[in-house]
Amino acid sequence: MNQLVNFLKRMPLSALFGLVVILLNLGVFCLAPAIAPFGETEVVGDVWLPMSTIHLLGTDHIGRDMFTRIVYGARNTIGVALLITFIAFFSGTILGLAAATMKGWVDQVLGRIVDIVMAFPPLIFALMVLSVMGSSTTVLVVVLSLLDCTRVFRLVRAVAMDVEVMPYVEAARLRGEGFWWVMRREILPNTMPPLIAEFGMRFCFVFLFISALSFLGLGFQPPAADWGSMVRENAGAITFGIPAALWPASVIALLTIGVNLVVDWLLNLQSKSAH
């Protein structure tokens, strides 16, 4: 416990702020129904009511409670973004390690496939797939995981290649260790530090990406609450000076800043320990 307090004390203010934001979001993510005062799709009053004690953030374009929608939106948006990031990380790490450990044709083939996927601009790639396959959460998860996986693959492969030429890996090979041991015990642990920071960055990317797609009307479909679509639904009111669309937009920004601050701190730590 004391150690934890000490650790937190040594964190810079910005990273601490980021950590609090992340924890807050995770809390809301887990406890959404308990926190939300109304139902997710429940119409509770007039359209675009101003902020009040009953409706903390007012109501939206068809009279649903904004605060409730944002709380439930956390579930959908963060949940799917996390799921995608996990899938992308899992597959990207395994493939990247495999390419670096096995080299030869495995590396060549994987490398070429990734090159092709990355030659597409990501948003355009996603839009084209969505136009063909239609927009559903499954398609979203598959497409975004694939897009993200290629970036994780590149990083893991590059880091693992650097580790792979280390004499301790050669020593393991000369001992007669098999492929799995070399990959799992010798290479993987040494590629972890940069991967942790990368996880945060990839999460931000996916999270912003889904929000953008939803904003364009191609991500989550109504009536499910998610932050990107909420911005879209309430955007029309902006020109009348009604800030309803800014609430979901600012929670998106807040969470991304939080994650980025923590990532920045992690990267700083790593570059310091490298010296």
Partner: peptide
């Protein structure tokens, strides 16, 4: 700035 979505 890089954390803000463009629409925000």
């Amino acid at each position: 700035a890089i954390s803000f979505p463009e629409f925000f």
